[in-house]
């Protein structure tokens, strides 16, 4: 993991505590490998997030 799934910034720089908090209440928007914006679909009992390069995450 290189990038923050919430804000898309480099995980090595800056404080992402608030982002981690937010990720319990919303799906990730950025791919943590390449920081592309993912296509995110939220449904009543789950979500999926797709990066064209790195595939699909679900929760």
């Amino acid at each position: 993991m290189t990038y923050c799934g919430h804000c898309g910034e480099d995980l090595a720089s800056g404080d992402h505590a608030r982002c981690r908090d937010r990720l319990t209440m919303e799906p990730p928007r950025f791919c943590t490998h390449c920081r592309r914006r993912m296509v995110v679909q939220v449904v009543p009992r789950g979500w999926s997030a797709r990066c064209v390069e790195h595939g699909v995450l679900t929760g």
Binding site: T24, E26, P27, V42, P44, R45, W47
Partner: peptide, 13 residues
């Protein structure tokens, strides 16, 4: 509203 919202997640239903 139970379950998730449109772009954010709700509490567990």
């Amino acid at each position: 509203i139970v379950g998730n919202y449109l772009t954010t997640l709700g509490r567990d239903a």
